[in-house]
Amino acid sequence: MKIVVIGGTGLIGGKVVGKLTERGHEAVPAAPGTGVNTLTGEGLDTALAGAQVVVDVANSPSFEESAVLEFFTTSTRNLLAAETKAGVTHHLALSIVGIDDLPDNGYFRAKAAQERLIKQSPVAYSILRATQFFEFVKGIADTATDGDTVRVPPVLFQPMAAEDVAEAVTKAAVGIPQKATTEVAGPEVFRFDELVTRALHAWHDPRTVVPDPHARYFGSELAERSLVPDEGSARLATIRFDDWLRTSS
Rank of each mutant, 00 (worst) to 15 (best):
L245Y: 09
A81D: 14
T76I: 05
G186V: 10
R151L: 03
D212V: 04
K19T: 10
L245W: 10
G232W: 12
D230M: 14
D243W: 11
E194W: 13
V54Q: 10
T208Q: 10
G50D: 09
V97A: 03
K19S: 12
F108E: 03
L44F: 09
S60H: 03
R225A: 11
I140H: 05
D148Y: 02
R198I: 01
V5E: 01
G219K: 12
A81Q: 14
T145R: 13
N37I: 10
T182A: 07
P29M: 07
E163Q: 12
G24R: 02
T21F: 03
P177Y: 08
V4Q: 10
A112F: 01
Q120V: 04
T46G: 06
I176P: 00
V4W: 07
V57Y: 12
E188S: 14
P213R: 06
A30M: 06
S75G: 14
F157Y: 15
V209I: 03
W203Y: 15
G33H: 09
E26Q: 14
G35T: 11
I239D: 00
V169E: 11
Q158Y: 05
E115W: 01
F241T: 08
A168C: 01
F218P: 07
T145Y: 08
A202M: 07
V189H: 06
D243Q: 14
R129L: 02
L80C: 05
Q120T: 05
K119H: 09
P159E: 03
L222A: 06
T21A: 06
S226F: 10
L39V: 15
T38I: 15
E65K: 13
V123G: 00
L227Q: 12
Q178A: 15
I99Y: 10
A161P: 09
I12F: 03
K171M: 11
E64M: 00
R116E: 14
E70I: 04
G35A: 07
N105M: 15
T76K: 04
D142E: 13
Y217C: 09
D100P: 01
H90D: 02
L48Q: 09
E83Y: 01
V17E: 03
V36L: 05
L195Q: 13
Q120E: 15
M1H: 11
T170P: 08
V54H: 09
R225P: 00
A234F: 09
V189T: 15
K138G: 00
L94W: 07
R129K: 15
R191T: 14
K15P: 02
P103S: 11
I239V: 14
V55Y: 09
D104V: 13
E163I: 10
P211H: 00
E22C: 01
P153I: 07
P159Y: 11
G24V: 04
T76A: 04
P153S: 15
L245P: 05
H90I: 01
D230E: 15
T182N: 05
F192Y: 15
L117E: 08
Q132R: 10
R23A: 15
T247M: 07
A168E: 08
E163T: 12
R109A: 02
F218C: 12
N59H: 14
L227I: 11
G10I: 13
P154N: 13
D243F: 03
G98M: 09
A112M: 03
A110D: 06
P122W: 06
G18D: 12
K85H: 08
S121T: 08
T21G: 11
V155L: 08
A82L: 00
G219I: 14
R235C: 06
